[in-house]
Amino acid sequence: MRSFSLTDLSNKSGEVIEAAYAGPVDITRRGKRKFVIMTAEQYDRLRKADDPRKVYAAGETPPDIAALFETEVNRLSKGEGYDD
């Protein structure tokens, strides 16, 4: 991913926009990533993608997810997996 500073965005806006046609572009401020510029098509594609994060109410959790959760809770309750 290409990266430009906010100053670059002001001084080289054409170059920044051209880079955004090829893929998302990071915009930095004082060396820290603050914004991402992308085409509307890229943004729309991201918005339509399924979000893998799900929330389930008690009793609605699919059995395979519930089994994974139960296994992890049991492992952690035995003190396994903690860093001292």
Rank of each mutant, 00 (worst) to 15 (best):
L76P: 00
T28K: 05
M1A: 11
I37G: 03
R29E: 14
V73E: 15
R75E: 06
V36I: 15
V73Y: 09
R29N: 07
I65V: 15
K54R: 15
E80L: 12
V55A: 12
R30K: 14
P24K: 07
L6K: 14
T7R: 14
D83R: 08
F69D: 12
L68F: 00
N11T: 13
E80S: 09
R30Q: 13
F4R: 02
T71W: 03
A40M: 11
Y56I: 10
T39L: 03
A66D: 08
K78T: 11
A20Y: 00
S3C: 07
F69L: 13
A20I: 10
L46D: 01
N11P: 01
R33Q: 14
A57N: 02
I27S: 01
F35P: 07
V25P: 02
D64P: 04
T7K: 14
D50T: 13
A19S: 15
E18T: 13
L9H: 06
D51F: 14
D84I: 05
P24M: 04
M38R: 15
R75W: 00
V25A: 02
K34I: 11
I27E: 04
M38L: 15
A57I: 00
L68M: 12
E60R: 15
R29P: 00
A19H: 02
G59F: 11
D64M: 06
L46H: 11
A67N: 02
L9A: 11
G31P: 02
D64K: 10
D84R: 10
G23M: 08
S5F: 05
P63I: 03
D51T: 13
G59W: 09
D83S: 10
R30Y: 13
N74R: 13
Q42I: 05
G14S: 15
E70S: 13
N74S: 09
E18I: 07
T28H: 02
T71E: 00
L46Y: 02
L46G: 03
L9Y: 08
F35Q: 09
M38Y: 04
I37P: 01
D83M: 10
S3D: 04
S77V: 07
F4D: 01
R2A: 06
K12I: 04
K34W: 04
K32D: 07
K54A: 12
P63Y: 07
K78D: 06
D26T: 12
R45D: 15
P62C: 09
T7F: 05
R29M: 07
S5Y: 06
E60L: 13
V16M: 01
D83N: 11
G31Q: 05
S10C: 06
P52G: 12
Y82I: 06
M1F: 06
P62V: 07
K78C: 01
E60Y: 15
P52R: 11
A19P: 07
A57K: 11
T71C: 00
V25K: 01
D51C: 07
S13D: 03
L6R: 14
T39Y: 05
E15Y: 01
T71F: 10
K12P: 01
V36P: 00
D84W: 05
T39I: 06
A57G: 08
S13T: 14
M1K: 10
K32A: 09
G59R: 10
G59I: 06
Y82D: 05
A57C: 01
I65M: 09
A58S: 09
T71M: 02
G14K: 11
K54P: 02
K48N: 08
K32C: 05
Y43K: 02
A40D: 03
D84E: 03
R2C: 03
A20W: 00
R47T: 13
G31N: 08
I27R: 01
